[in-house]
Every structure is written in C-alpha cells, then in structure tokens.
C-alpha cells in the first residue's frame, strides 16, 4: 500500500501526522494523498468534471465525519472508494436518468486491441456513459479497485453470477465501442474515404461498427 500512497500523492510532500501518538493520518494528509485517485474514479463514474468534483468533495466530507470508523488505515483508499460509490449511487438516484444501451453483446468476439494512443478520451467517456449504472459500477470497480468478481459481489451484495455477467458484458461493450473508433481512426489515416454515421457507430450491433471503405 505504501507504494500506492506515493503513486497517488501527486508529487506533493506528504508529512506524517504530527501527533506522534498513533499512525493515523489527519484528514488534510488524506486529502493531499488521495484526492487525485478519488477524483479520477469520480470522473469516470459521473462522466463530467463538475459532477466529479462535487462527488469528490462529498466523499471527503463524509470521510471527515466518519473517519473514526476506519480501523485499518492501510485500506483507507478502498474505504474512500466505497464512500465515493455510495455517494454516487445516492446522487444518481436523485438526478441521473439511466442510459438505455443494449447489453446484448457477443462475448466470444474479442477484437484486436488498439494502441494506447488510439483510444480517444471522448469516445471512452461516451462508451462509459452508455453503460447502465449497475454495469458501469462493476466495470469501474474492476479497473479502479482491482477487484475480482468475488470481491465485487461481496461489496455490492449481489450474486457472483450477476457480477460475472455484468463485468463481461460491460467490458465487451467498451471494447466494441473503442475498437470501432480505433478502426475509424485507422481508416482515416489511410487514403480512402470512410463512411460511418454516428447511428452506425452507436448501434448495439457489433457488425454495424465496421467502417465502410470506398474507393474514391
């Protein structure tokens, strides 16, 4: 965990608590260490900067009130993520409309992975936004909290089979979306015309994601 701490401290000088009585850091120290990690997770959950910032602030305000409940300070980041998730679920129940992406995806088809620089940030955000909350939370727990499906099932208190199904479908949805974008970008670099409408790209049918290449 100590390596995690340095990784998320964002280069700031984090000094230990001056109390000297226990190794429990104060909230200021926790904010400095973890605000970037919490914000990134919040950003992926909320989908925009304003909501992510609100969510991050809300998370630390809850932490301020309930920090005494944390017994193991090594797991403080996991606890913050858990607070963040709960804050998000509460807020989205009030305001957010569920997207209606079809999660009927072909799990057998795993397209070739693109290069990291072929992943477009806007497309990634759109792909996440398309996911219903219950799928997005599961997939973000996998990527941000490094949870196995058993851990996700325990934390969300849902059956393991449900987690496995949601995780597989959510990941397949992201791959399908991003591979079509990467393929488009790749095609755009070639000296041919590419015809692909937004409707095509957003169709739940994987086949319609393929760009149509035409000779000039």
């Amino acid at each position: 965990m100590s390596s995690d701490l340095s990784a998320v401290s964002g280069g700031r000088d984090v000094t230990p608590s001056p109390s000297g009585q226990d190794d429990r850091p104060d909230l200021r120290e926790i904010v400095i260490r973890y605000h970037e990690a919490v914000y990134r997770y919040a950003y992926r959950l909320a989908g925009n900067q304003a909501d992510a910032e609100d969510l991050t602030q809300q998370t630390f305000l809850v932490a301020q009130q309930q920090l005494s409940q944390v017994r193991d300070m090594d797991k403080i980041l996991a606890w913050l993520f858990s607070v963040l998730r709960n804050c998000y679920l509460k807020s989205c129940r009030r305001s957010r409309l569920l997207p209606s992406a079809s999660m009927d995806v072909d799990l057998d088809q795993v397209p070739e992975s693109p290069q990291r620089d072929e992943i477009d940030e806007a497309e990634l955000r759109l792909a996440l936004d398309e996911l219903p909350d219950e799928f997005r939370i599961v997939v973000l727990m996998f990527y941000f909290e490094d949870c196995s499906y058993k851990e996700i099932a325990d934390r969300l208190e849902i059956p393991i089979g449900t987690v496995m199904s949601r995780l597989a479908r959510a990941k397949a949805h992201l791959r399908r979306w991003l591979s079509s974008r990467a393929a488009l970008a790749d095609a755009e670099r070639r000296p041919v015309a590419v015809v692909a409408t937004v409707e095509n790209r957003r169709s739940p049918d994987a086949r319609s994601y393929r760009p149509v290449r035409m000779d000039r």
């Binding site: 964002g10 605000h35 970037e36």
Partner: peptide
C-alpha cells in the same frame, strides 16, 4: 484490460482541486 485500465486512469486533475 491493460489499455482500457490505463486510459480510464488517465484523466486530467482540475487545477486547484486539492
């Protein structure tokens, strides 16, 4: 997983957030 995970973690932190 490697590429998507990296892309998900790669988002700018607003200035002055801390």
């Amino acid at each position: 997983d490697g590429i998507v995970g990296e892309a998900l973690h790669d988002c700018p932190i607003p200035e002055g957030l801390c």
